[in-house]
Each structure stands twice: as C-alpha cells, then as structure tokens.
C-alpha cells in the first residue's frame, strides 16, 4: 500500500472526566482502529487524556474562509448578546 493512500484523521482528547474532547492535531492511519492506536502513541505520551476520538478529516465540513465576513462579522456589534451587557439589579441573588 503506498503511503499516500493512508487517509488523514483528526484527533480529539478528553483531558479528564467532565471536560469535553478537544482537538489536538491530526495523523495518518490505514483505518480508524489504527488511527486510535496511533493517536495513543503520538498524542498521549505524557498523560494527556482519559479518552480519545478519531474522525476522518474528510468527514468534517468546515466553514469557508471566504465566508468569514458574512459568518462572523455581524456578531461583532451585538454586544447585547453578552451577559456582561446587562446590569444586574442588586436584589437579584444567586447569579
């Protein structure tokens, strides 16, 4: 099998119970099972995690860099979407 036939996988690690899996990088593997083993050997050498996910990179649908303005800029001037925009009445407890 030529090496350029090995597909790319994205690797996600959950650092500890209660946290969510976080993207840490990518690697090549012949299939998902090998990808999990490779991820173990490449990304968890120093006690980084308690759980691993691998996802074929081809299965990820990403936003387009060209769409950045229409996707993300409109949020910039809507500061009322942040909770800090609102003043909390002094009588309200437990927030």
């Amino acid at each position: 099998m030529a090496r350029n036939e090995w597909p790319l996988y994205e690797v996600f690690i959950r650092p500890k119970n209660g946290l969510s899996h976080k993207h840490v990088g990518s690697l090549h593997a012949a299939d998902a099972r090998m990808a999990v083993e490779n991820a173990r050997d490449v990304y968890t050498r120093r006690g980084e995690g308690v759980s691993l996910w691998v996802v074929p990179s081809a299965a990820i649908t990403a936003s387009e860099p060209g769409e950045k303005e229409s996707f993300f800029d409109p949020a910039d001037d809507k500061i009322y979407r942040h909770p800090t925009f609102y003043t909390i009445p002094e009588d309200v407890k437990n927030i």
Partner: peptide, 12 residues
C-alpha cells in the same frame, strides 16, 4: 520506521 506514527509507536 515506515510511517512517522509507527516510528513513535516502536520507540514507545
């Protein structure tokens, strides 16, 4: 090793 990932696995 034949692949970078396997190189690390063998070294581990």
């Amino acid at each position: 090793a034949p692949e970078l990932e396997e190189d690390l696995a063998l070294a581990n």
